[in-house]
Design a binder for these strands. Sequence first.
RNA 1: GGCGGGGUAGCCAAGUGGUAAGGCACGGCUCUGCAAAAGCUGCAUUCGUCGGUUCGAUUCCGACCCUCGCCUCCA
Length: 475
Amino acid sequence: MSLHLFNTLSRSVEEFVPLVPNRVGMYCCGPTVHNFAHIGNFRTFVFADLLRRYLAFRGFDVQHVMNITDVEDKIIKSVGQTGRSLADFTGEYERAFLADFDALHCLRPHQLPHATEFVVQIVALIRTLVARGIAYQAADQSVYFSIDKYRGCGCHYGQLAHLNFEEMRSGERVSSDDYAKESIADFALWKARVPEDGDVFWPSPWGEGRPGWHIECSAMSMDILGPSFDLHLGGEDLVFPHHEDEIAQSEGAALQATGQRFVKYWVHGAHLLVEGQKMAKSLGNYFTLRDLLAKGFSGREIRYLLISVHYRASFNFTLEGLLGARTALGRLDELIAKLTELTGGVTATSSHEVLLDQFTDAMDDDLNVSKSWGSIFNWVHEQNKKLAQGTMSREEAASALGAWQRVDQVFGLGAAPAAEEAPALIKALLQDRQAARQSKDFARSDVIRDELKAQGWVIEDTAKGPKLKKVSSTP
RNA sequence: GGCGGGGUAGCCAAGUGGUAAGGCACGGCUCUGCAAAAGCUGCAUUCGUCGGUUCGAUUCCGACCCUCGCCUCCA
């Protein structure tokens, strides 16, 4: 089999065939840096990372691009309120975002273009659209995209969202500043400068102003990946209007070769719910990544949970689920530790394992991670059985370990964190307990064990003597 | 109102026209002075409801119920 993905354009699972053999251009709509990103945002970015890693696993040379939106209404509002400069304000949240991104083991995209650094390309693209008669400057000095004119060129608006515009509800949701537009559905390419914008503006052929939201992605993606590229990802909410408008702008500029689309495969990730409800600050279920880290969970555990569910399925993110993820991951870590110990540093000469075949089959099927994890845990079970029976050779262990490492290049969980060293005081208590046990004073030994537990350290008596383990703090 | 997802054990979840993967939780066992940890093992006659097609449906068709999302800034 080969990789198959669900294309929003056709609403069906299609075989993935890149425009240029073995090379993949992939663009994912990134964050607007005006706040700390929440767990829902990261579901999409972790999904993009998973796909990027799987494409690499499948032998594709991937060029992964993710934009940073650093100029936008909410940003401008905050900048105005705080009195900080645009770069100072967005810089802070971008750094925070990337720190969180790293904590989730997401590989940095090959390029991270900023909207503010692409104003020249954005203006050029709008110019093309104006020259083609598809965009117009309105009385409010802003430049809008004309959907009627676009359709007049034989283009189809609404192909991605599959919307029937005649039957769409309109009404009070249309804001009052839309008077200037020729048609209600037209959207801004260039927003004319208003006093509230403060210092945030750029010169353009249409006067001072700033880019509209959708145009930055068209300009940046086509500038970096070319007018036609393979994959465009994002959250499901971006299907309309953001991605629909991106198609309109990009194909309206007609930069593509004849018969080529702007994007071949549109892939969207579903949103997540938190504790059964839509995330909302008022419900107290609004989690940023740092909130979860503060609760004692690791980025690794959160990543595991996020990649344990299919990207197109709605997913209920719960603290209970996170606890379950911790246990499941611990089992996996335990096996890897045992295998590593058995190999004694020997690396596998061959890592042909059924595991890899099953993993590839499942992932080829539109990234069926649930199926993948099913076979992985069956494999864990079998390895454990062999280990328990003492029938596993050093070579077998090395081969198994090698196979897992290949799988983990995609899942990106990495090695289990090293155990924390106990402080001297704790170690002294442990020695007292050992002494008590030696003299069969189990009452005293148990008292010390309780004392250690109260201090946050759990004892595990193994064949090689007692081990101390720090209790992870959980909510 | 339009469009699109879902409803499978306590929770998460895969899946197939031929009789239900996997994970968490839970029970039993091994180990242990007792625990813990780990391992082994058990755990849905049943897949939202009602009809239909079929030798046979959770899987196909129809109706209905429930639920989520998008149509507005939004991952």
